[in-house]
């Protein structure tokens, strides 16, 4: 069994990114798309922390990941509020039906 190195973590991050990207591409449900975005942001965080542990020799990567988590939480809160507002307006959260700017 080989030792776990940087590449193993990068592959996990890549897998997370690909699954999140698939989610964003295929979902029509606005909440599903937001979940895909969260997965993509987590993939970025895994990469940051893996590089911080194996490559940088400092804790800067962990600080960046704190900022990413903060922005992801803000994005989720705003996104869900917008989704609920759209649901009240259109009675649907299907993004294919949200085609007007001014209702």
């Amino acid at each position: 069994m080989e030792a776990i190195g940087l590449q193993h973590y990068l592959i996990v991050g890549l897998g997370l990114f690909c699954l999140g990207f698939y989610c964003v591409l295929t979902r029509r449900n606005a909440i599903g798309i937001l979940m895909g975005v969260e997965l993509i942001l987590n993939a970025a965080n895994v990469n940051y922390i893996a590089f911080s542990h194996f490559g940088a020799g400092s804790y800067d990567g962990q600080v960046y990941s704190i900022f990413v988590i903060m922005l992801a939480a803000a994005e989720a809160a705003i996104g869900m509020a917008i989704v609920l507002g759209l649901y009240r307006r259109f009675r649907s959260i299907d993004v294919a039906r949200m085609t007007q700017l001014q209702g």
Partner: peptide
């Protein structure tokens, strides 16, 4: 933040819009 915040927020949004949420989830385009 994620497990305690974002997931709970997501579940809230799912519950508040639920009967529409599980109609059609695949993308035609």
């Amino acid at each position: 933040l994620y497990v305690g915040g974002v997931v709970v927020l997501t579940l809230f949004a799912v519950m508040l819009t639920q009967h529409i949420a599980d109609v059609q989830i695949s993308n035609r385009s």
